[in-house]
Amino acid sequence: MILEVATLDVIPGQETQFEAAFAEAKKIIASMPGYISHELQRCLEQRHRYILLVHWQTLEHHTIGFRQSPQYEEWRALLHHFYNPFPTVLHYEAVGQKNYRGF
């Protein structure tokens, strides 16, 4: 299992609109092959900053299956205009457990 971690800086003042758009966008990501779960959390100290945590079965489910799909274009149209700067997205795997590659 892979954890995608995205730091989302929303343009200040657009948080409510972003959260409404995300309510629609989450249906898209949840329908994708390899999707396991997600969480969106808002920062208490910087109210325009969010983190998105998405569990995928494999890295390729996110980077190829989702990012190269027509559904990603819908996701992008709903959300990307809220970000400044564009989000940093990194992927993590559990330490001390067998990962999807068998290590």
Results as ranks from 00 to 15, higher is better:
Y92W: 05
Y50N: 02
N99A: 01
G96L: 05
A77L: 08
E4I: 12
F86G: 06
Q97Y: 08
G65F: 01
H81N: 12
S69Y: 05
I64P: 10
E73M: 12
R47G: 02
E73F: 08
P70Q: 00
V10D: 01
E24I: 12
A77Q: 14
H80T: 14
L44T: 07
M1C: 07
Y50C: 00
E60S: 11
A20E: 06
R101C: 10
C43S: 15
R42K: 11
G13T: 04
S31V: 02
Q68C: 08
Q97R: 09
I11G: 06
Q57N: 06
E4Y: 12
F82A: 05
A77V: 01
H91C: 11
H38Y: 15
R101Y: 13
K98N: 03
Y92K: 05
K98D: 04
L44S: 07
P70D: 00
K98Q: 03
L78G: 04
E74A: 13
N84I: 08
V54Y: 02
L52C: 11
A30W: 06
N99F: 03
H38I: 11
V5Q: 09
Q14M: 12
Y92M: 07
L90P: 03
V89N: 07
T7A: 08
L44V: 05
L79H: 13
E60K: 12
M32H: 02
I29F: 07
E39I: 15
Q41S: 14
L52Y: 09
H80P: 08
A20K: 02
L59S: 02
N84A: 15
W56K: 02
Y83C: 08
E19P: 06
H62I: 04
W75S: 10
H38T: 10
K98R: 07
I2A: 04
Q14S: 11
Y50L: 02
F82Y: 14
L52F: 11
H48L: 03
R76T: 12
I2G: 05
L52I: 10
E45P: 00
V95A: 06
I2M: 07
Q41F: 08
I11V: 09
A23V: 05
Q14G: 06
L78N: 06
D9R: 09
